Simulated assay, not measured.
Amino acid sequence: MMEMEENEITKIAYNCRKATFLIEKKQISTITLREKLELKIHLAGCSVCMLYEKQSRLINNMVKDLFSSPDSREIRLDESFKKELQAQIEKKLNNN
């Protein structure tokens, strides 16, 4: 297994962006052993990302439960809402 240098550990410990990416990746697929270690190191010192992970897991579980229920086929967005949302997306895309 590759050894981590001290500066690599420091980069991981203070990289919330990478930690949140790994938290989300872990929920939809598998992460490598190195990624697991990086995430564990980060979470050991970052209470904000620990809370993010708990909340993200809770939200994902709630959405899975919602869409696995028999009533999930009845969940639909209102047509006017979809049109307004599409217009907002297009406006933002055109501004960049």
Score class of each variant (00 low, 15 high):
8 E>V: 07
10 T>N: 11
15 N>L: 07
17 R>E: 15
17 R>G: 14
17 R>S: 14
18 K>M: 09
18 K>F: 11
19 A>S: 10
20 T>V: 13
20 T>D: 07
21 F>Q: 11
21 F>H: 10
22 L>F: 07
23 I>R: 01
23 I>Q: 02
24 E>K: 08
24 E>L: 01
27 Q>H: 08
27 Q>I: 06
29 S>K: 05
30 T>K: 08
31 I>Y: 00
32 T>Q: 04
33 L>E: 15
34 R>V: 15
34 R>C: 02
36 K>T: 00
36 K>W: 01
37 L>K: 10
37 L>S: 07
38 E>K: 07
42 H>S: 06
42 H>T: 08
44 A>Y: 12
45 G>E: 13
45 G>F: 13
46 C>I: 14
46 C>W: 09
46 C>R: 06
47 S>M: 13
47 S>Y: 07
47 S>E: 12
48 V>G: 09
52 Y>V: 11
52 Y>C: 12
55 Q>T: 14
55 Q>W: 08
55 Q>D: 06
56 S>W: 06
59 I>F: 10
61 N>P: 12
63 V>A: 10
65 D>C: 08
68 S>C: 01
69 S>Y: 10
69 S>L: 03
69 S>C: 03
69 S>R: 06
69 S>W: 02
70 P>D: 11
76 R>T: 11
77 L>W: 03
78 D>G: 01
80 S>L: 12
81 F>R: 01
82 K>F: 05
82 K>E: 15
83 K>W: 00
83 K>C: 01
83 K>R: 09
83 K>G: 03
85 L>N: 09
85 L>C: 09
85 L>Q: 06
87 A>V: 04
87 A>W: 08
87 A>Q: 10
90 E>C: 02
90 E>H: 00
90 E>D: 15
91 K>Q: 13
92 K>V: 13
92 K>M: 14
93 L>R: 10
93 L>F: 05
93 L>N: 11
95 N>K: 11
